[in-house]
Amino acid sequence: MMGSLAVIWAIGRKDLLLEIRNKDVVVAVAGFALLVLVIFTFAIDLNQGNAELVGPGVLWAGIAFAGVTGLNRAFALEVEGSTLEALMLAPISRDLIYLGKALGNFLFIAVAQIIVIPVFAVLFNLVVFRWEMLAISLLTTIGFSAVGTLFAGMSVRVRAREVMLPLLFLPVVTPLLMAAVESTSHMVYGRSWSDMAQWLQLAVAFDVAFLVVSAFIFQHILED
């Protein structure tokens, strides 16, 4: 068990090290999401009522679309250098490779959100620095990483992968996006944990289901 966790952490840490050196993924995700937020602040009359109404949707749509860009890049780097095959040569099960890559993607999207959410709070004049937001963000990022890593792995050898990944990813994460938007709405309206409980439960169920299923499927998509 500890050995498996060490392998997962080593893959995630390696991705983080490469990202610190290249800044490919976080800059792309944060930049794209910030652009979406800024465009909407111009497009919508952001009085308090409108901000509470549309803000959560804009935030999570921006992060979801931007996340696709980052997910594509994270796997493309492994294929360009054939390093994915080097991982496959190692005496570790393929699900550990999946979980390690998912951890890396989780870290990238989380770091991007640390940049994006404060900017969102300022632009939309909403109070988001609350424990509820941390829980929503954590659960949504786990789900994005779980599904995104699987589909990025599936589409990485496809010629039109930039098109393929969003086509696969966005429909599948729709329930998770709904949960994120609805719970964020409850939060900005100042409602209690119990009001958003059903949406958080949906997010937890989504994360658990997709982590387990994706780890299983990933073993089969790597083979020639």
Binding site: A6, V7, A10, G81, S82, T83, E85, A86, P91, I92
Partner: peptide, 23 residues
């Protein structure tokens, strides 16, 4: 055919990483 190494990591970092993969 391909060296299958992380180009933006040093030789030491690559070998340390793969040593962890091989436990």
């Amino acid at each position: 055919h391909a060296p299958m190494l992380y180009a933006d990591m040093t030789v030491r970092e690559n070998l340390l990483f793969f040593a962890e993969m091989y436990r």
